[in-house]
Simulated assay, not measured.
Amino acid sequence: MNLAFVESPVQLLNVLEWTHAMGEEAPAVTTVVVLPPVDPMSRGQLRRMADLARDEGITVRWQEARGEQGTPLRTLRALVALVRKADHVVIGDPFSRYVQLLLSVVRAARLTVVDDGTATMEFVAQLARGERLVRWHRKGSKGPRELLLAPVTASARRRFTPSAGHRVEVFTAMPVQAPDGVEITANIFSWTRARFGPPRLTKGADIVGTSLVETGVVEAEPYQEAVAALARTHGATRYFAHRREATAKLHALEAATGLEIVRPDLPLELIARRGPIGRTVLSFPSTVVHTLPLALAGTGVTVAVCDIDPRWLRDTASPRAQGFLSGVTETARDAHRLAFAPLAPPAAP
């Protein structure tokens, strides 16, 4: 049995991409376990993606894993037997505590990590350097919870290390260097291009939002000013919100910039491919500067990425933040690079 675990719409999209790319090599019956987050936008997108997965003949199991006290433990108990039966385990988030706990009972000889965007870049880099697994925007707290879970993380990391009789694959669109023994398979969004589009192009530009404010990396005020500057400079009319962006922040952006705020009901790669989409798509450093050029190949759309000015970073941002974001921009092979967004001049005294 081929068993996948996903916690976001993009992860589920890339399970579909992996299944399509494997063709006859992928087992005919694939079961995807969805461990949904609590925020409504992510849950809505996941439900839409689950419908698409079912249309492709995949069995989807919706497993609530968060919320009431005791739910995480009940979820883990409910999934243990299923995990032990799997011949091949596919996961979307190697940093997930749920996934790391479940890996402790995995007996499968094959393990595949499907694309989770920029997080995949950090995962592969940490794996190659022999470091513990920690998300790039976190400072790596060593509080009681982290100390308690340290053995779980260490055990999971060993499961991601290939050995005799144990294959590890990373399926990704991101530019990564394979650690010793790890197989890298390119995600070129062939399923997305076959399933949707080509899109109708509009005359203007579109801006792709980011959750860098919500994750505590960038200050809200300079971010809003940068969005406004991009809209003025490039004639943008729409802002595609990230699913984790706060409603209050989006209302402020709409009032300050006049942009139409769009809350996508599917991952942006599918929304853009389905269209309509601007001839130019503007983004800050994020996954889409790598994935949209692939999903929109041959359509005439230009993807441009705007650097993050170090002055926009919060004092509490991880010391790795600037270097990581710069790396995302510098390695975007098919995206046009923009300088820092020109902010509005200060008001005259």
Rank of each mutant, 00 (worst) to 15 (best):
G117D: 02
L266P: 05
A119R: 06
L325Y: 00
D315A: 15
H234C: 04
R273P: 02
Y98D: 10
H166R: 15
A295H: 09
V32C: 12
E24Y: 00
T280A: 04
D206C: 03
G165C: 02
G67A: 13
E269Y: 14
A21F: 01
T161G: 05
R243T: 05
L76C: 06
R158N: 02
P222K: 15
I261G: 07
R311V: 11
V227P: 02
V83D: 07
E68N: 11
W18S: 05
V29E: 14
M121K: 05
A28D: 01
M121A: 06
G197Y: 12
S155Q: 13
E24S: 13
E269I: 08
L46A: 05
P349T: 03
L76K: 08
G300K: 11
R167C: 10
R47M: 09
T31M: 04
Q322D: 09
A205S: 15
F160Q: 02
G235D: 06
G143Q: 02
T215R: 08
G275H: 13
D334H: 11
L259W: 02
V106Q: 08
R138K: 12
A348D: 13
A248W: 12
G92I: 09
A150E: 15
P349M: 10
V80W: 12
T118G: 01
E214V: 11
R314T: 08
Q224I: 14
R84G: 03
T185S: 13
G327R: 04
R314V: 09
F123E: 06
P349I: 05
A154K: 04
I277G: 04
S318Q: 07
A347H: 07
A255I: 07
D93Q: 04
L270Q: 13
Q69D: 00
R132A: 12
A252M: 05
L52G: 06
Q100E: 12
D334N: 14
R200K: 10
A348Y: 07
T247I: 12
T287V: 03
P264F: 06
G298V: 15
L148V: 10
A229Y: 03
V262M: 02
N187P: 09
P72V: 02
R232S: 10
I277P: 04
S326W: 04
V303I: 10
T112G: 13
K249F: 14
T161R: 14
L3M: 10
A256S: 15
